[in-house]
Nucleic acid binder design. Structure first.
Length: 272
DNA sequence: CGTGGCTCCTGTTAGC
DNA sequence: TGCTAACAGGAGCCAC
């Protein structure tokens, strides 16, 4: 479900409210992708300092340590003073003196991990190798992006998805940014012209930023920590539109499989 | 090393 | 209608 915009929208929807909160208790449901990594009781008494994001990871800094939250494919967070009784898909529940933070994740590809901080080996392992932050102008550098493309023979779509060059571009936005920059998803990264690469660079920034502004994408069930749905699906020009007319040329949008993932594109508008 | 395929799990949908 | 199979927004891990 969540790509960078959804994770960022989630972060913004509870970061300020949870600041300074003291952990009262933690309840775990079924196992997630990884174990919490410590006894839940160990976190009781900890105080939340701030909530940051790196790629699709939410980093909740505590006065001692750091919680890493990943929403996986189907996860969503809620933060509120009171929440309904735990449901079958609620697998992490953190009561604090400022409200309850709850992870609902039907598929359980998500995770909550307690670490000692960013230098913790577990945190390092997960965060190392992540690409540039596309919404951070100082971090997302054009020259580095171009050099990264030129250094890879991989088809561009899976390269974007890998997060090695830029983080946060998931399956929906990968199709959307390639359509916007008129690049074929199968084009080898090192075959993309500088002009097209520049369009791609800008499309990644613009489309992700717009999606954050709009509150994220709701294809099925995304909502932020206040429970509000996103509205970006209204903007999807190719994702999920195979067989429907291209908004630009009117020809049919095609569906392609790359690395077990669906890619949507316009064969007429997106060449090489 | 870079790349591609497999894997975790449950819910929804398409097709017969 | 009911059953079954395919597919879903992620990404680490392993084998080449």
């Amino acid at each position: 479900m969540p790509e960078l915009p959804e994770v960022e929208v989630t972060r913004r929807s509870f970061a300020v409210q949870i600041e300074g909160a003291k952990v009262l208790s933690i309840t775990m449901g079924k196992p997630l992708r990884w174990p919490l990594g410590c006894e839940p009781a160990k976190l009781v008494g900890a105080q939340v300092q701030q909530v940051r994001r790196r790629g699709k990871y939410l980093l909740i800094d505590l006065d001692q340590g750091m919680l890493m939250v990943h929403l996986g494919m189907s996860g969503s967070l809620r933060f509120a003073h009171t929440l309904p009784a735990l449901g079958v898909h609620d697998h992490f529940d953190m009561r604090t003196d400022k409200g309850v933070l709850r992870l609902n994740d039907p598929r359980r590809f998500g995770a909550v991990i307690a670490t000692d901080g960013e230098s913790d080996p577990v945190a390092r392992k997960l965060l190392q190798g992540l690409g540039m932050e596309p919404l951070d102008d100082a971090h997302f550098q054009w020259e580095v992006f171009l050099a990264g493309l030129q250094a890879s023979r991989s088809p561009i779509k899976p390269l974007l998805l890998s997060g090695k060059l830029v983080v946060g571009v998931g399956n929906i936005y990968a199709s959307e940014v390639l359509f916007a920059s008129r690049i074929a998803p199968t084009a080898a990264a090192n075959s993309i012209s500088t002009v097209k690469a520049k369009r791609l660079y800008q499309a990644i920034r613009d489309i992700l930023a717009l999606a954050v502004e709009r509150g994220g994408t709701t294809l099925r069930d995304f909502s932020n920590a206040d429970g509000m749905p996103g509205h970006f699906q209204l903007q999807a020009k190719v994702y999920g539109r195979n067989g429907l007319p291209c908004v630009h040329c009117g020809k049919a949008i095609a569906l392609l499989r790359q690395g077990q993932r669906s890619t949507f594109y316009c064969p007429h508008c997106q060449k090489a």
